[in-house]
Every structure is written in structure tokens, then in C-alpha cells.
């Protein structure tokens, strides 16, 4: 059985220097916000968006999919579900169009089934390129359907979260998705099925306060922002400087809300192992 570095803590400067704006992996910016090294896109592609200082760049869902799912194993589900702009919110349609172009998806999450290191699972990956992974009714609907599909087909669920929270432009309908997804997670769990969440930068708001924190095992990427209220809002409300490392995966680990932090290069193997350990045969033959 391969050994994993559980409780891995990154040896980088993230915590010392506080938060920086994080460019998306794939955007023209190539300067690491942590060590300020200039990185070429081809270097980043080779390292799956990780700088040699340990900084993890954000990753689009399609890109992450290529990296995490076994080659040609992904079968996409519910790709046609999209927002109907239910409130006719000013300027929203245009934002949706831009997000579609940027991400190549009709919503902020990609859902389907695949194998990871040979282990079959249902998979969802939220997309920072689609309105920073904000959760609209269609996002919630896709995730809910994926859990229902997994429940019906006896599959574990692996979910990558990245989100600014519930989507303002869909008002209380996006809020209700916290309840819908939670209910579906609950049913999936009641059947004895395994749910693994991988929190990536940033996982906040209504997503943190629902399915992101409901995993049987919660994994996070090094340096990822994980929290409920936005850091700026906390700062403005309390009028106090934030403690170092506030709302990082490392601090959430310290406070007992995350099981383990795994660097991206070890992520796939860690997921494979956890899926295997939760097979109905309890990981026989590992």
C-alpha cells in the first residue's frame, strides 16, 4: 500500500505574507503571486499549475478534469442544464454568456462519471472560470442530480469545490440550492456511499455552508482559501486586522475542519486510495 503524506503542510511563504490576489492558471499572467517568479505557460502546464515555491494556481474545470480523470474515462452528465435567468436580473444574461465562453460550460460545474486510478466514481468539478464558481439554480441542480445518479448507481462521489458562494443574480433560488444539494448528499450518505470533497481556492459562502463541508472526508489544496464570510467583510465588520493565515486550508486544518491537505501532484493518488478504501470490499487487496 502506498504511503501518503497526510497532514502535509506546504513549505511556502503563503501564510507569512498574507493573502494575495490569485490569477487563474491559463490567464496571461505568469507571475507567481507568492514568490513573484515569472512562469511560462508551458512550465505551468508541466507542473499542473503549481509553482516551485508551492503556490497552487487556480485551475479551470476542464483542465482539472484532464488532470484528475483517467484518460477517456469521463462521461459527462447533465451538460445541457443552464440558468434561465429566473429573476431577469439586470446585466446577468451578458455575464452568463461571457462565463460560457470563458469556461466552455453552460454552468459553473462539470458533472459526470469517470475512473480515477481505475476506481469508478461520480465526479463534479466546479469552475473558477464560470463566475468564480458561484452557485446558481443550475449549479445546484447539476450537483443534486449527480448525487441522485450516484445514489441510484451505487457510486461514490468526488467533488472539487471552488466558489465565491451562492449567486446573487438568482436571489433566494440560488440560496435554496444549499438545501437541495445537502438533502441529496444526505440521501447518498444514508445508503452507505462515500463522498470525498476536495476544497480548492477559493471555497467560500453558500458552498462552504453546504456540500463542501458535508464530505465524509474533506481534503484541501495547499494555501486554498476556505471560509464562510468573505475575508474583506470580516475585516470591515470587526475593524481588526485579520490573523495570519486566516481562512487558509492550513488554518482550517488546525481548527479541525479539514481532514488533510494534499498537494496537487499527490492528489490523484490520494483520491484513488481513498476511493479504494471505501469500496464495498473495504479495499481488499490494496
Amino acid at each position: 500500500m502506498p504511503s501518503l503524506k497526510f497532514l502535509f503542510k506546504p513549505q511556502n511563504e503563503l501564510e507569512k505574507r498574507g493573502r494575495k490576489t490569485a490569477p487563474l492558471y491559463g490567464e496571461p499572467e505568469k507571475t507567481c503571486p507568492n514568490c513573484h517568479r515569472t512562469l511560462t505557460i508551458s512550465t505551468l502546464e508541466k507542473t499542473t499549475g503549481v509553482c516551485s515555491c508551492g503556490y497552487h494556481f487556480r485551475m479551470g474545470a476542464r483542465e482539472r478534469l484532464d488532470f484528475i480523470a483517467d484518460k477517456d474515462s469521463f462521461y459527462e452528465l447533465f451538460a445541457d442544464i443552464a440558468s434561465s435567468d429566473p429573476l431577469s436580473f439586470p446585466g446577468y444574461q451578458e455575464k452568463l454568456r461571457k462565463a460560457e465562453n470563458a469556461s466552455g460550460s453552460k454552468e459553473s460545474v462539470v458533472t459526470g462519471t469517470c475512473t480515477i486510478g481505475g476506481e469508478k466514481c461520480a465526479l463534479f468539478i466546479m469552475d473558477p472560470l464560470f463566475m468564480m464558481g458561484s452557485m446558481g439554480a443550475a449549479t445546484g441542480e447539476k450537483i443534486t442530480r449527480l448525487f441522485e445518479y450516484a445514489t441510484g448507481n451505487d457510486l461514490p462521489v468526488v467533488g472539487f469545490t471552488v466558489s465565491g458562494g451562492a449567486r446573487m443574480q438568482e436571489g433566494m433560488l440560488s440560496l435554496m440550492q444549499m438545501a437541495a444539494t445537502s438533502a441529496a448528499v444526505r440521501r447518498h450518505g444514508s445508503k452507505g456511499l462515500f463522498y470525498l470533497t476536495v476544497l480548492t481556492d477559493p471555497t467560500t459562502g453558500g458552498v462552504t455552508a453546504s456540500f463542501a463541508m458535508e464530505g465524509d472526508i474533506i481534503m484541501a489544496e495547499p494555501g486554498a482559501t476556505v471560509g464562510f464570510a468573505g475575508a474583506r467583510v470580516v475585516e470591515q465588520t470587526t475593524r481588526q486586522p485579520l490573523p495570519k493565515g486566516f481562512q487558509t486550508a492550513e488554518s482550517m486544518l488546525e481548527h479541525g475542519f479539514i481532514d488533510t491537505i494534499v498537494p496537487r501532484k499527490d492528489e490523484k493518488e490520494a483520491i484513488r486510495l481513498l476511493l479504494a478504501l471505501h469500496r464495498r470490499d473495504h479495499g481488499k487487496g490494496l
Binding site: 462552504t208 464570510a229 470580516v234
Partner: peptide
């Protein structure tokens, strides 16, 4: 909304 509330798992 506060540092303590966040650290004690408001989202969770």
C-alpha cells in the same frame, strides 16, 4: 461574521 466564528466552523 467574525474571526472566531470562522475559526469555529461557521460554514460547517
Amino acid at each position: 461574521c467574525g474571526v472566531d466564528a470562522e475559526e469555529r466552523g461557521q460554514g460547517e
